[in-house]
Design a protein around this nucleic acid. Structure first.
Length: 271
DNA sequence: AAGCTTTGACCTATA
DNA sequence: TTATAGGTCAAAGCT
């Protein structure tokens, strides 16, 4: 790992590097958002058929592996570009992926709508790349990160214990949302998982940071027999075939107005 | 028996 | 003020 790691970036953003390092996917962040910076907010397109052929990369299985579970963040860190410190999955065009997507050509044959949606993501990429000149990439401080479906653990297992407390069919998405709370005592962290009717995760939104370290996977509540069965139950396996999904970290007030002008500027510059 | 999911009802924010 | 949508509660049932 180079000196410009995600951890370093987070550290320079005023966030405790150890805590961030603990598990960025699990959303173990300090309660304080502090920075007041706008979070990284990209347009959430309808599911894109970009990872249909990405199943060959079983990253989600890596995340599921008990052996890797407690150190999944290490994998995530290792996926950060050693040269830029940016997430390698920052671009849905696949060009930035360390594991070259076999579907790269497929992304070039998107339907117009999908392509435009893809471009929305790409603007974020360009934005990120531009701002990498800055000491602190805003996206990291903003604490909202989206990753492709294959970055999502099949059972949404991020190492924390989650208890589902609700499910809702929301209008803005045709997919139902499941609402989860962290089972750790006094932890207010929540996550919203949006899945297709097939059970495939299309989006995960983390809300609120964990106020505790990630439990040992051998101790965490989710290791209960019921959960273990669910994890092993193929019917509960999700996301492996997800067409497109994302993980969002939502740690504060959204101020898209701060983000949009820059996107517009990039669009002008780019077009 | 503990802890989980399910699911309809309820609460709250917003247009 | 009201309608609507999103988020949460809580009882019941399941593992």
């Amino acid at each position: 790992m180079s000196s410009t790691s995600f951890t370093d970036l987070l550290a320079s953003s005023g966030v405790d590097p150890y805590e961030q390092d603990e598990d960025f996917l699990g959303g173990f962040f300090p309660e304080t958002t502090g920075s007041g910076l706008p979070k990284f907010k990209t347009a959430q397109p309808s599911p894109l058929p970009i990872s249909q052929s990405s199943r060959s990369f079983a990253f989600s299985e890596l995340l599921d592996s008990p052996l890797l579970l407690s150190s999944s963040h290490c994998y995530l860190q290792s996926l950060i570009s050693p040269t830029t410190g940016a997430f390698p999955f920052q671009g849905f065009n696949g060009s930035d992926f360390p594991w070259q997507l076999p579907s790269q050509t497929q992304t070039q044959t998107q339907t117009p709508n999908a392509a435009s949606a893809l471009q929305e993501e790409t603007y974020g990429v360009q934005d990120l790349q531009k701002k990498q000149e800055d000491p602190v990439p805003r996206e990291f401080a903003d604490r909202q990160v989206k990753v492709p479906s294959y970055m999502v653990s099949r059972n949404s297992n991020d190492g924390y214990g989650w208890r589902k407390y609700g499910q809702k069919q929301v209008k803005k998405s045709e997919n139902p949302r499941s609402y989860f709370k962290c089972t750790y005592p006094n932890c207010v962290s929540k996550k919203i998982v949006e899945t297709t009717s097939d059970g495939q995760i299309t989006e995960i939104i983390y809300k609120g940071g964990h106020n505790h370290p990630k439990p040992e996977f051998t101790k965490r509540p989710s290791s209960s027999s019921a959960n273990a069965r669910r994890m092993l139950n193929p019917s509960s396996v999700v996301s492996e075939q997800s067409e497109s999904s994302s993980i969002s970290f939502d740690y504060g007030e959204v101020d898209e107005e701060k983000e949009q002008p820059e996107i517009k500027r990039l669009k002008r510059e780019g077009g």
